[in-house]
């Protein structure tokens, strides 16, 4: 599913973000990526989103070598991923429905398909009655559920969550990770979640990968139980 082979990344200002990173995540796994600030977690996610490219090494996602992608291919590659961000990244002047529908529109989906699928996904994250609200009328937890609905709408095989509980109260944090957990178990969607919250990591007992100073320092190992 995901493979990092001897990946190095040094930024133009000299910061060494990743050093000889090797990581393999199998299809259907749920992986927590932990590490202190500046450890290289965000760089790892940016490389997966093809926002940054490694200086050397190879990254393979769903049998695609990211180094072979052209500028034109990138949008189509990104459609195969679902992304959830710490700051939700919802379009402020669009309703909840439109924010979720937007990710479908981008793929050229018909209005009919959008009208059918968006309410279904919103119901899945418990936001049916908020569908006409604007993002600023929702709580942090609700906004993140909209972000989750948007990530799910195109049935991605991989969801990348960058500290999704960072701006959410503890009770909602649990609910959000629980939702991701359910999605992983029910749909077999691979999930990569960067987090600082050790309590959540301990609670959900999934694979843990720790990065420090750009190197992989600990890995609880592949989740044999959840292989699909």
């Amino acid at each position: 599913m995901i493979e990092f082979r001897n990946v190095y990344k040094t930024y133009d200002n000299g910061t060494k973000a990743l050093r000889d990173l090797n990581l393999r995540v199998n299809e259907g796994e749920f992986v927590f990526i932990v590490g202190s600030s500046g450890a290289g977690k965000s760089t790892l996610l940016k490389i997966l989103m093809h926002e940054e490219t490694p200086n050397s090494g190879e990254v393979i996602v769903n049998n695609t070598r990211l180094s072979t992608l052209s500028h034109k291919d990138i949008p189509y590659y990104r459609r195969t991923l679902g992304m959830v961000f710490q700051d939700f990244r919802l379009i402020p002047n669009m309703s909840v429905f439109d924010n979720v529908a937007f990710a479908m529109r981008v793929t050229g989906a018909s209005t009919k398909a959008i009208r059918k699928k968006v309410p279904y996904v919103l119901a899945h994250v418990g936001l049916t009655d908020k569908s006409h609200c604007l993002p600023n009328e929702l709580s942090g937890g609700e906004q993140q559920r909209v972000g989750l609905a948007r990530a799910l709408i195109n049935n991605p095989a991989l969801i990348i969550a960058d500290e999704p509980t960072g701006n959410v109260d503890p009770r909602m944090s649990f609910e959000i990770v629980d939702m991701l957990n359910q999605i992983n178990r029910n749909n077999g969607t691979t999930i990569l979640m960067v987090t600082h919250e050790h309590a959540l990591v301990r609670k959900f007992r999934r694979r843990i990968v720790e990065i420090q100073n750009g190197e992989l320092v600990a890995d609880s190992g592949p989740e044999v139980d959840y292989y699909v």
Partner: peptide, 16 residues
């Protein structure tokens, strides 16, 4: 800028 970055993240093409 935020809107454009969101568009990019969900896989919008340049034309879109």
């Amino acid at each position: 800028k935020l809107e454009i970055s969101i568009m990019k993240s969900v896989g919008a093409t340049d034309w879109f």
